[in-house]
Write a protein that binds this DNA or RNA. Sequence first.
DNA 1: TTGTATGCGTTATCAT
DNA 2: ATGATAACGCATACAA
Lengths: 324, 324
Amino acid sequence: MATIKDVAREAGLTVTTVSRVLNNRGYISAATREKVYRVMAELDYQPNEIARSLFRQRSKMIGLIVPTVSHPFFGELSTAIEQHAYAAGYKIVLCNSHLDQEKERDYVDMLKRHKVDGIIMGSHTLGVEEYENLNMPVVTIDRQISATIPSLSSDNYEGGRIAARLLISKGCRKVAYICGSLKLELFANRRHDAFVEEMTKTKCPHVVVQTNIDVFDTTQYEALVNALFTEHPETDGVFASDLKAARVIQTCVRLGKRVPEDVRIVGYDDVRLASFLVPPLTTIRQPIDEMADQLVGLILRQIAGESVPMDTVLPVALVERSST
Amino acid sequence: MATIKDVAREAGLTVTTVSRVLNNRGYISAATREKVYRVMAELDYQPNEIARSLFRQRSKMIGLIVPTVSHPFFGELSTAIEQHAYAAGYKIVLCNSHLDQEKERDYVDMLKRHKVDGIIMGSHTLGVEEYENLNMPVVTIDRQISATIPSLSSDNYEGGRIAARLLISKGCRKVAYICGSLKLELFANRRHDAFVEEMTKTKCPHVVVQTNIDVFDTTQYEALVNALFTEHPETDGVFASDLKAARVIQTCVRLGKRVPEDVRIVGYDDVRLASFLVPPLTTIRQPIDEMADQLVGLILRQIAGESVPMDTVLPVALVERSST
DNA sequence: TTGTATGCGTTATCAT
DNA sequence: ATGATAACGCATACAA
């Protein structure tokens, strides 16, 4: 692989001059500029970004830590993040934490050693101080960590409210909300808050099911939904994130319940999977591309030394399909 | 951020010695080793991997180019690849080509400039010579490029055969195979070959539908499947990759056809989506984790200067669920 | 057992 | 308009 030295030698110049034309800095005669370009083409020269990074103290890399890109939401979000980062000249180092604390810590250390310019955190298994001690540009997805780390989320509260109202307006008399643990300080919990508030306000009986069962575990998840309908047979409305909602649809069918006639189901996310289901899932759309755009923007502005808003909340929208 | 110099100064030693304990090379007294460790901990020293990369001419980074990680198959495969790479001390630079030729070329150049140690290519929009001129460790997913670039794929031929035989054994009399363009030299085309062979051999009427319509485009894709059933109303068996199969199920239901009673459907991939469908999709399983493992292994061995097998084909398996 | 000098490829500063 | 040199942070060959 040709280096700047090879180009300089071949062009009968010094590396300084070559570097100058490479970076369009200072004065260079049209003649030498031409020559340098020609030699660079001849030698198929590509500047070594590692050396550049070392000198500039900038890697042009952003670390992305997510639970796993095989989850549709994070897959779609990661794609969008990568696109926006690339458009800005940044590369993405992908890290799947699988929500393993040790792994996440490991990844953070690795990213620091590799001098990424910033980290987008979609996984949150560490303690508050650990994130605060990072001492570099960070932005978190869906979790409020502290007053010093900016976060981004969709309007979970509004989403919960829209879902609740939709179910009520469709005539549901007994509804369920299925979610992960409410203990972590995730913005997703606002969905729960709004949902319960609405239901309470309208005196609609409701039940909240917290679970950490892996939604990809077909058997176990079905058992969970089964239990819900056994304990609350009158349930005629369910709100849960898209993947969970998909499981609910499955189980309803197996139980001989019709969707939406007997049970109405609303998802959250609007991952593409939602449109593949039978019936296609009504859901609350998170603006994934916009989120990615903002996430990258928040990191980039921190890298540039600018100050950024602390908690950005993006609007959601109801996508009404056939499950309600 | 502390550098090796800071550690050396603080410990009253030279950088050489510190480097030595850092890399466990040569002789060092237990005393100084202790001291160095202590100072490193005090200063929270992390070796700068950029500097290391420059010196070692090894970035410990692998480029991964896929159409998009938001596609379930690539999302799952990418997760697995990242895990295996990480276990081997390598990081993944994520590139979503969106099957855009210019973009893919751009990504390849970028990866070369960043001195990644190898590239895993899951996107194939470039010409053969371009890949051959890469001049670095490469392995491709599902495409045979040339005699010099190793590839990895699942046993598409066997998968096509299993699917065909299953449909036949279930009593199908008129089947369809839906696929992307057969023009590219992709191993996926072997599915088609085997499928058609089996159908011909058993004299089972069949039709092949090639399409490049985006499977995520609900309306258009439904129109395509609609057209299939309009032109071939007696179709009672369909083989297509999981996402396409999901669309077929959807459209069948909309047309009032029962699955599997009226139409039997077999997918290919066994992405997790398959188990979420109603009915759960019978499909040919690609061994995603094993593929990722081998892919990473093939790259690593090339990086190590070892020779590797040219075309690796991994076995597939029938996962029988309820759509057949 | 530890230190000195050099180089990895690049850019910036200061000369000329 | 171009060149010599130092520096980015680290690891090695060679000395001592």
